[in-house]
């Protein structure tokens, strides 16, 4: 690896760090508006972007042999696959003869109401 390229990396580190700080600020401020969609995007959306930046630049995934990004993407695919197959079992709460604890209904009601009343979030 040439010296020139090496230097460029250093420049990137600070730049990426600055972007991450800005994104952190966004993810802190976003949920303060207490609007469901904004909360989701600023919490999870920003988290995904931050994870991508860290993996790509700080973990040097863009400079590793090509099979390593493939392996990382494969793991992500497996994770989504796992979630897709497990979700119907563990996230489903309807069915004949099913009884869920009372707090589940309260939580659903809270979610349906837009989730704006933060202090009324029922505790399990």
């Amino acid at each position: 690896m040439s010296e020139e390229v090496h230097d460029t990396h250093h420049g990137n580190y600070v730049k990426i760090w600055a972007i991450l700080v800005v994104l952190l600020a966004v993810s802190v401020v976003g949920p303060m508006f207490e609007i469901r969609v904004v909360t989701l995007v600023t919490a999870f959306g920003v988290a995904i972007v931050k994870a991508y930046l860290v993996i790509k630049h700080f973990m040097h995934i863009n400079h590793t042999p090509r099979f390593i990004p493939y392996l990382v993407v494969t793991c992500l695919v497996f994770m989504l696959l796992f979630f897709a197959a497990v979700a119907p079992d563990v996230m489903n709460d309807t069915g004949s003869g099913w009884e869920k604890p009372a707090w589940v209904a309260e939580e659903k009601a809270w979610a349906a109401g837009g989730g704006s009343a933060g202090d009324q979030h029922p505790q399990p």
Partner: peptide, 15 residues
């Protein structure tokens, strides 16, 4: 009883 799911273990174990 407390909102957990025993089938989740089965998924994690067999994955």
């Amino acid at each position: 009883d407390r909102g957990g799911d025993p089938i989740l273990w089965q998924h994690l174990f067999w994955f």
